[in-house]
């Protein structure tokens, strides 16, 4: 475990807590894409299949449980909570996220490190996570006013994988045979998808104005 990876995991944890805080305290999911939350629940469900078979560390298992539990409970809140679901903007959250799953699954069936069920599902989760933010970014461009918590959520979610890139560089130079091209490329693509959001996020922060993405 290196500082970049720990920082990445803590940033990821913070993004999830910010979103749970928003939904649980102000009972609103305005500006939050249910599609992205569903994709993330699927990402964790397919990535952590080894939670019972491969014990890495207490930290690893606890974090997996937190990400699984939080992503599924956020989906439940938005879909079923009698107050929260009223603030869900289903007319704006129209990204056809099924169209993201199919190519990711096909790609995982052809490009993976080992052709086993768990490994293909793990690879699928990497490809899916890379594009999972798209429904949320599309929704942000449609909803004019982005509230602070949603903006912070997306920022932290994008930053965590960016920190992981430093972690991969660090591990590449410190551990022999640490080469995971698929993870690296998926991680870079994922982070690049946030590039324009990061730009407007910093602009709004620098000029101390409300975050607004161009239509």
């Amino acid at each position: 475990m290196n500082i970049f990876r720990l920082a990445g995991d803590m940033t990821h944890l913070a993004s999830v807590l910010v979103l749970l805080l928003k939904i649980h305290t102000i009972k609103s999911c305005a500006g939050v894409s249910l599609k992205t939350q569903e994709l993330y629940a699927l990402v964790f469900a397919t990535r952590y299949l080894d939670i019972v078979t491969d014990f890495i560390s207490v930290y690893n298992t606890v974090m997996k449980l937190i990400f699984l539990g939080s992503s599924f409970s956020i989906v439940w809140y938005i879909r079923h909570h009698r107050v929260v679901r009223r603030s869900y903007d289903k007319d704006q959250d129209t990204f056809r996220h099924y169209l993201l799953m199919i190519p990711c699954m096909l790609l995982a069936l052809f490009v993976h490190e080992k052709f086993t069920f768990k490994e293909v599902m793990w690879t699928f989760s990497l490809y899916l996570e890379a594009v999972a933010i798209l429904p949320q970014l599309v929704l942000l461009q449609r909803t004019r006013n982005i509230d602070n918590l949603t903006g912070q959520y997306v920022f932290l979610l994008g930053a965590y994988r960016g920190l992981y890139i430093f972690n991969w560089i660090y591990r590449y130079f410190t551990e022999p045979h640490f080469v995971h091209w698929i993870t690296w490329i998926a991680g870079v693509v994922q982070t690049l998808l946030y590039a324009d959001f990061f730009y407007y996020y910093f602009e709004s922060w620098k000029n101390n104005v409300r975050l607004q993405l161009p239509a």
Binding site: D50, I56, N60, M63, F67, K114
Partner: peptide, 10 residues
């Protein structure tokens, strides 16, 4: 090599 692919990252 027979090492099972262990994914130690989240």
């Amino acid at each position: 090599e027979g090492t099972t692919l262990k994914h130690d990252e989240l």
